[in-house]
Amino acid sequence: MTEVSYAVADGIATITLDAPDRRNALSVEMSRGLIDAARTAEADPEVGAVVVTGGAHFCAGAVREVLADVGRDPVEDAAYRNLETVYAAFTTIGTIDLPTIAAVRGAAVGAGLNLALSTDLRIVSRTARLLPGFAQIGLHPGGGHLSLLHRTAGRETAAAMGLFGEEVRGARAVELGLAWAVHEDEQVEQAARDVAARVAADPELARRLVRSFRRETAPGGLPWEVAVELERSPQMWSLRRKHG
Rank of each mutant, 00 (worst) to 15 (best):
S212Y: 08
G143R: 04
G55I: 03
D194G: 01
R72C: 04
H145Q: 07
G162Y: 08
A196R: 05
A196W: 11
P203V: 11
P141D: 12
R241H: 13
T85I: 13
R126C: 00
R207V: 08
G48W: 09
E216K: 09
L205A: 15
W224T: 14
K242S: 15
A102C: 07
E225P: 00
L239G: 09
R39I: 05
I96R: 08
P45C: 12
M161V: 14
Q190D: 14
P20W: 05
D18V: 01
L139I: 00
A201M: 03
S233I: 10
G143C: 05
G110T: 10
A128G: 05
V210N: 11
F213H: 13
L113N: 06
V4I: 14
T119A: 14
D73M: 03
A13F: 04
G48A: 11
S238Q: 14
T91R: 04
A103D: 08
A181D: 13
S125C: 01
R81L: 15
Y87P: 00
L176S: 09
G33D: 11
L148F: 13
A89Y: 02
A111K: 00
H183M: 10
R208F: 01
S147T: 12
V195L: 13
V195C: 04
R211S: 07
R39W: 09
A192D: 04
T100Q: 12
A197H: 07
L115I: 01
A107F: 04
R193C: 15
Q136I: 04
I137C: 04
V52R: 03
W237E: 13
A111S: 13
V174W: 07
A128V: 06
G154A: 05
M236Q: 15
V228L: 15
A108H: 05
H150D: 14
L230M: 12
R105W: 00
A173C: 04
V226Q: 00
A41N: 09
D18T: 10
A108W: 10
D36C: 01
G106C: 03
A49E: 10
D120Y: 08
R39F: 05
D202N: 14
R193K: 14
A192K: 05
I137Y: 05
I123A: 04
P219M: 05
V226Y: 00
D10V: 02
T2P: 06
R32M: 11
A13M: 08
A160C: 08
A60T: 03
V86T: 08
I101L: 13
R198T: 14
Y87Q: 03
V188F: 01
D77I: 07
I96A: 12
L131P: 00
L115K: 10
T119V: 08
E65Q: 15
R172S: 07
D10W: 01
Y6V: 06
V86R: 09
F58P: 06
E186N: 08
Y80S: 12
G142Y: 08
Y80P: 02
P219G: 03
N24W: 05
G244L: 11
E167L: 10
A19Y: 03
V75G: 00
R193S: 07
T217S: 15
E184K: 10
